[in-house]
Amino acid sequence: MRDNASILPLDVEGLRFEAGGKTLLDGVSFSLPKGGVTAVIGPNGAGKSLTLRICHKLIMPSAGRVRWAAEPGRKRHAMVFQRPVMLRRSVIANLRHALVAYGTPDPATRAQTALARFGLLALAERPARLLSGGEQQRLAIARAWALEPELMFLDEPSSQLDPGATRQIEEIIRGLAAEGMTILMTTHDLGQARRLSQRVLFLNKGRLVEDAETTRFFAEPSSSEARAFLAGDLLW
């Protein structure tokens, strides 16, 4: 690694995003220190995925800043999408492709390590697009992990999965956090947020309404919007 300085904390200041005359994000600011799982929650259209995408540099904000503590040559944050993008290749080739694109040294070994770490060795030569939903999501996480990020963005990592696969994914996330990976994830599954995260960012209509410890947020939300959301009165 050329540069060992941590990219964290991540400082997001006054994010604003407009499209087609609509303001989708408005003045979102937060800071993300190293470690832990942070859940971004809120009703549909609150701007959860958009926030992740802007942080991951997939989308440019209309205003505001995304500032990293360090900016090493190689991007040290990775993202897993709600619908995992599976290249039309084998499982192992999907890993190798990402590693080669990233310029990771010794991609073959790293790919093997990732397969082993996520229990995918038996599936190595299978066409990735023929895997089950849970296996695809696992491969997507393995592929992101292989890139050695400090921070992983997970966008609704289990929204397409059955309960069994969801449990598996949650275990994986807990394991990653235990190893020191910082995780920023969106979820519309409040139970999942409660189970996994230590901190909650509650967005509504493009604004960051609450930024709180998970236990406190669920026990005593400070805003009326959060209370309505938890009571199921906000559409989502």
């Binding site: 995408r53 991951h56 997939l58 991007k75 990775a78 993202m79 999408f81 993008v85 290249l87 039309r88 290749r89 492709h97 990402a98 694109a101 990233y102």
Partner: peptide, 24 residues
């Protein structure tokens, strides 16, 4: 349109995305 976010995330945009797309 299917691969875009993943490839962009990997830094493969513009002509750098072409080999992956042609192969797949």
């Amino acid at each position: 349109s299917e691969y875009r976010e993943h490839l962009t995330s990997l830094g493969l945009t513009g002509w750098r995305a072409v080999p992956t797309l042609l192969w797949d």
